[in-house]
C-alpha cells in the first residue's frame, strides 16, 4: 500500500555505486546550495543540473513526478499571491487584476528551487536503501537513539500500513463511511486501537531483540570504504555547490 522510498526495482547506476557517506554529503551540499539561489540567472543551470543528476540515477520518471505533485497549500497559495500582488512592474492587465514582473519571477524562483531540491532528494533516497542510509548517518554523527528509532519506525510502517488498511476494510464492511462526520470517531477508535496494540507488541519486540543481542556494543563500521572515484564525485559536488553559492557575488 505504501510506496517505499526506493522504487520497486532499484536499477544499478553510478548513483547506487557511489559510496553512501560521500553521496550523502555531496548531494546535501548541493541541496543547500540550491536553497540559497536567489539570482534568476542561476535558475536554469540549477534545474538542468538536477535533471542531469536524475538522468544518471536511472530512476523511473514517474517516481519523481509523483513526488512533485505534492506542492502543498503554501506553494499553490504563492502561485496566486506572488504574480498578482507582489512587485511594481506590470506585465499584463485584465480589469482589476494585474500580472506583475517581480512577483512572477519570485514565484518562478520558488518553483525552480522546489523542483531542483525535490529532484536531488529523490535521487539520494531512491538510490540508497534505508539501513545503508542510517548506517552512514550514524557514522557521520547521528545519535544512536535517533538512528534506532528511524530504522525501527521505517521497518514497522509497512506492516502497520497493512494493519490500518485491514482495519478500515473491516470497519467499512460493518457500514462505516469514511468521509462522514461519524467516521471521525471511527478513525479515532482505529488510531487508539493501533496505539494500544503497538504498545503491547513493543514489549514483546524488545524481549525478542534483547535475546538477539540488541543494546550490546555493536560495530559501526560502514561496509565499504570510499575509493578515489567516490571522493572525486564528492569534490565535484562541493565545487558545483560553491559555484552556485558564490557566483552572484563574483559575476555581480
Amino acid at each position: 500500500m505504501i510506496a517505499r522510498a526506493n522504487p520497486e526495482a532499484v536499477r544499478e547506476s553510478s548513483l547506487t555505486r557511489w559510496e553512501t557517506r560521500a553521496k550523502l554529503i555531496g548531494l546535501l551540499c548541493l541541496v543547500f546550495a540550491f536553497a540559497s539561489v536567489r539570482d534568476t540567472r542561476l535558475l536554469a543551470p540549477m534545474v538542468l543540473l538536477s535533471l542531469a543528476v536524475f538522468g544518471l540515477s536511472a530512476l523511473p520518471a514517474r517516481h519523481l513526478l509523483s513526488r512533485l505533485k505534492v506542492p502543498g497549500v503554501f506553494l499553490v497559495a504563492l502561485a496566486v499571491v506572488l504574480p498578482l500582488f507582489s512587485g511594481e512592474t506590470v506585465l499584463a492587465e485584465a480589469g482589476p487584476v494585474a500580472l506583475r514582473l517581480e512577483g512572477t519571477l519570485a514565484f518562478l524562483s520558488v518553483a525552480a528551487r522546489f523542483f531542483s531540491i525535490v529532484t536531488l532528494a529523490t535521487v539520494l533516497f531512491g538510490t540508497t536503501p534505508m539501513p545503508t542510509l542510517v548506517r552512514a548517518m550514524r557514522s557521520l554523527g547521528l545519535p544512536a537513539l535517533l538512528g534506532d528509532i528511524l530504522l525501527f519506525t521505517y521497518r514497522y510502517i509497512f506492516q502497520l500500513a497493512e494493519d490500518l488498511h485491514r482495519a478500515r476494510v473491516a470497519a467499512r464492511l460493518r457500514g462505516a463511511r469514511f468521509g462522514s462526520i461519524r467516521s471521525v470517531s471511527t478513525t479515532a477508535h482505529i488510531i487508539g486501537s493501533l496505539l494500544v496494540r503497538s504498545n503491547w507488541q513493543a514489549e514483546r519486540v524488545l524481549a525478542a531483540m534483547l535475546l538477539r543481542g540488541y543494546g550490546s556494543a555493536r560495530s559501526l563500521e560502514v561496509r565499504r570504504a570510499p575509493v578515489a572515484r567516490d571522493v572525486a564525485a564528492l569534490a565535484l559536488c562541493l565545487a558545483l555547490a560553491a559555484v552556485f553559492v558564490l557566483s552572484p557575488a563574483l559575476i555581480g
Binding site: 534506532d148 525501527f152 519506525t153 502497520l160 478513525t187 496505539l195 524488545l206 540488541y214
Partner: peptide, 25 residues
C-alpha cells in the same frame, strides 16, 4: 535504559506516521 524505550517510541511513531496519511474531509 533509554534503548528499552526505542521499540515503543518507534511503533508509536509509526502509528502517528500512518495516521497522518489519513484524509479527513
Amino acid at each position: 535504559d533509554p534503548r528499552a524505550g526505542v521499540p515503543r517510541a518507534s511503533l508509536l511513531t509509526a502509528v502517528f506516521f500512518m495516521a497522518s496519511l489519513v484524509h479527513v474531509p
